[in-house]
Structures are given as structure tokens and as C-alpha cells.
Amino acid sequence: MGRYFLRRTGAAIITLIAASIIIFGFIHLIPGDPIYVMLGDGATPEQVALLRNRMGLDEPLVVQYMIWAGNALQGDLGQSIFFDTPVTQVIKEGAETSILLATITMVWIILFGVPVGILSAIRQGTWIDQGLSGLAMLLASVPTFWVGLYLILIFAAGLGWFPSSGFPSIFEEGGLSNLRYLILPSLALAAPNAALILRLTRASMLDVAREDYVRTARAKGIRPYRVVLRHILRNALLAVVSAFGFTFAALISEAVVTETVFALPGIGRTVVQSILRRDYPVIQGVILVTVCLYLVINLLVDLSYRLLDPRVELE
């Protein structure tokens, strides 16, 4: 277990270093001088020199990278050009919304995708299975923003059950009841991913159901529902759990669109706005934090996989 953990952590660190080089290099991929791109054509030479010096762009590339990475390690991701505040501050402001949104979305995905996938597998070939499979295909193929707009149209504008946009912090007036602002966006974000988890759970259950050891379990005289829960589901979930890591990656990129549609003050919307404002330090910072988060979550998924499957250590 210890060696497994060290090996996985080592791999994650190498990935992080590679990602950080790409993220760092990204500012230099912009055609022309990034300073002019940031400040626009009307910038005075003094402004240009000031910004160039402040961003350290007059140093050699390797030195620039070491300074940037060194600062990042100490939690300093630089200054936002637009807000003139530390990038970490900008990320912190969006973090609450994004973390809550991602968490609630994951809850929907697990609550809907896994049980419905199980139901679909148990009722394989019946109208229930076909109906659910059709629904899953529909949800997976419709773009998130479209689902979002329809949810707003029906449940916010039409029925008035949920607010359509914005999100006041849960630490402000209203407290936890403010989470209702996140219901519709999280549903929109969950829809395509829950559909994929549903399909994966179903396929995995059907695969495992054909295994010899499931026949052994039946031969013991165990009741069918216990065969499903104890023997089929537990093994089928191995594949589903490893998909949660990828689902999270999908959430990050899809959250950008969802936060924009629902006008949520999250990190995704911050990135979109920063791209429009050419606020490169913010973009770099957000991407770096996202990569870290992604690596940590996949590390956790790998470790939980090890707990679920006793064979992993040998392989």
C-alpha cells in the first residue's frame, strides 16, 4: 500500500511539472509581444517597460520559469492585471461557487447514474431499459447550455421554483438555503455526465453478470437481489469508480459554459472573463490549480480502487 501510494504520487508530480511547463509556455505562444497584446496598441513605452519588468519578461526563459514555479509553490500565482489583486485572491472568490457546484453535480451524477444504471441492467432488454437508454442518449448528446436554458425556461421562468441566475455565498444572508441557486446549474451540468455513468454502470453490470463467479453465487442459493448487490455491483463499480476521475475533468471544462449561462460567480466564469480581458496571470493560475485538483482527485480514485480491488497491488 505504501509503495503503491508513493509510485502514484511520484507519477502525479511528474505530470504536474510537465503541465506547469506547458502552462508557463502558453503566454509565450501568443503571436507578437504578450505585453502589447495585454495592454493594447495605445500603451506608452513606460507602461510597457513597467509591465515587462513586473512580469519578469526581461529575464531568460528558464529563469522566468524557475521564478514563476518557485512563487507558485509558495502560493503566489502573481498579480491579476485587470483586478490588480493577487491571482490567488481572484481564485478564492470563485472557489466557493465552483466547489459547491462540482460537489452537488457529483451527487446528482452518483444518485442518478449508478442506481438507474443498475435498474437498466437488471431489466435488460425490457421497455424500462430501452426507455432509460434512450433518455441517456438524449441527455448525453444535448449540449449543457441548451439543457441549462431549458431548465431556466421551465423551472425558473415558468414554474418559479428555483432562481435562474447568480449565487450569493452560503455565508451570507439565507445561509444554506442559498444552495437553491445551484440546483438548476448543477442539474444541467450533471445531465450529460450522469448519462455516461448510467451507460457505464449498465454495461459494467452486464459484463460482470456473465462472470463465472456470479453463477457460483447463484448456485449457492443466494437470493437474486443479494447476488446483484454483493457479487455483481461490487465488481461492476470498479470500472465506474475509475470513471469518476474523468467525469471530474469533464465537469471542469463544462462548468465554464454552465457558470456563464447561469451567471454564477465561479472560477469557470472568471476564466472566460479573464480570456476576454487578456488577464494571463489569472488564466495561468486557474489552469494550474485545476491541474492540481485533477491530479489529487485521480490519485484519490486510484487509492480507493486499491481498497475496492484486492488484486491491484500485484499488478
Binding site: 462472470e211 463465472d212 463467479y213 453463477r215 457460483t216 453465487a217 449457492k220 442459493g221 443466494i222 454483493r230 457479487h231 461490487r234 465488481n235 470498479l238 475496492l308 480491488d309 484486492p310 488484486r311
Partner: peptide, 24 residues
Amino acid sequence: FQEPMTSLNPVLRIAEQIEEAVRV
């Protein structure tokens, strides 16, 4: 069954698999 390699549940201990049959 014919295939002892695949006829036991890979994620459950031997004790659990036998005791399950005993309890039934």
C-alpha cells in the same frame, strides 16, 4: 464448475464466500 480460476469472486475473502453459502 470447470474453471476454478474464475469461479470465485475476486474481491471477497475465501471465508466470506464460504460463510455466505453456510448462512443460506
